[in-house]
Nucleic acid binder design. Sequence first.
RNA 1: GGACCGUUAGCUCAGCUGGCAGAGCAGGGGACUCUUAAUCCCAAGGUCGUAGGUUCGAUCCCUACACGGUCCA
Length: 501
Amino acid sequence: MSEEEVKQQERGEHEDPMVTRRRKIDELVAEGVQPYASGYQPDSRSADLNKTYEGLEPGTETQDIVTVAGRIVAKRNQGKMGFYVIRDAQGDLQLFVRKNVIGDEAYDSAKNLDLGDWIYAKGNVLRSRRGELSVQPTEIVLLSKSLRPLPEKFHGLTDTETRYRQRYVDLIANPEVRSTFKTRFEIIAAIRAFMATRGYLEVETPMLHPIPGGAAARPFITHHNTLDMPLYLRIAPELYLKRLLVGGFERVFEINRSFRNEGMDPRHNPEFTMIEAYQAFGNMESMMELVESLIVSVTTEVIGTTDVEYQGTQVSLAAPWRRAKMADLVSERVGEKVDTHTDIKTMRALCEKFEIEFDESYGSGKLLTELFDELVESTIVEPTFVYEYPAEVSPLSRRNDEDPDVCDRFELFITGREFANAFSELNDPLDQRARFEEQARAKDAGDEEAMWIDEDYLRAQEYGMPPAGGMGIGVDRLVMLLTDAPSIRDVLLFPHMRPEA
RNA sequence: GGACCGUUAGCUCAGCUGGCAGAGCAGGGGACUCUUAAUCCCAAGGUCGUAGGUUCGAUCCCUACACGGUCCA
């Protein structure tokens, strides 16, 4: 190694960036500086300042002293002055650091700061000649030293794996990601506010279920040590919410996580957020009104319009929404009149014609549903209530009074995807028992998603549940629609991932 | 579970028909008192996802595996 190379190494020129930053911490500590200081509270935030000083002319300086804090995301040193951009929860703000204002020693310390460091600064407000609102510090305090280099300033962080695994870095580097999640939580707040205006009480029911119920899905299983018994993460809150109707609550809703032990893809995460709501004396019709009003209201409030663009497709969410019977939609698509009463040979032939797999155990109702799922669902772009679901696939729904083979149930489809599921609730304990028993037979026959018999739920119904309407909306999907997110992972802060390689 | 695509410096990406591994940004040194993807000069930075194979020689071709993405079941 040459003498020059030795000198370079001593100056840290060959160091890994993390080593360089560790060295800077050691140097600060040696100087008596705490690299993780506490007790500094900024009195101003970036966007607030920009608003307050909106009219400040370029090149003018105020004597207003403010304190600010944030993470350094850009540093442009220029001899005896420098421009440091700090990012706080509201956005970015420029610090105009001048050697003759802050002093020689503090200026050199500031030059030693790294991108990613959290700092606090005190100084007067001015607008630079180039028009950027700035704070001109007389004091800068390091609040938290960053040991890892930030992603590239211009392109940000694009690697999907890193973005999902290290969402904190994604949030630092990509401001639009922060904006997406802000919208997510505004949507959820707006849903809560809307439900409150409708007189619904937000409740909490168990997430650990002794019997998983309320949906057709495989559950996660866990174990209670003290009781030495299996417990299941809930696949839906439905059966507990309806027990509350039995108890006399007339309008309840719950908005929280459910868990399904299924595959992961751009629309499914093992844990996801749903709102479910139940209204005594309501029915399918009142649930259509509720779902439509809720989505229109929340959309208008959060994004300011009912015209949305999702992945290049324009969609109007303006009410009223189209209503169509499942059997009519399928008939139209397959070119012949079919419904739940069509003989099973015809239905099987249609499935074969369209290359749809089915099981021998499926009745005409389930075959109709398969045809709908495969041939029609993805073609529905504008909001559409598809109703009259076969009773065969609706074990918790009330039968239609005129045609007991179908239920007063609908699903809402937008952009080819299911957004909501709702129905007049089945409150006849005798019919409910029969439906559960049918499910139990399917389970015995190997259907892993078939429902279990929940004796306590039946007992509750035997006390009498008022007639009711109930609905569930997939909140993650609604957020995807309103933020134009292609994948559910883009609207979940910490999507589920395999362990790192 | 299957098909296809991807994995190269901290980040964003090049890398031709198999022949010594490239750039920009970030980081280091220097110049610069109105920049905002600042600019200019200098120096540095790599187990090419992992493990095998073919070859005189592999980032490149082949196989397996891992992780990610999309589509399908």
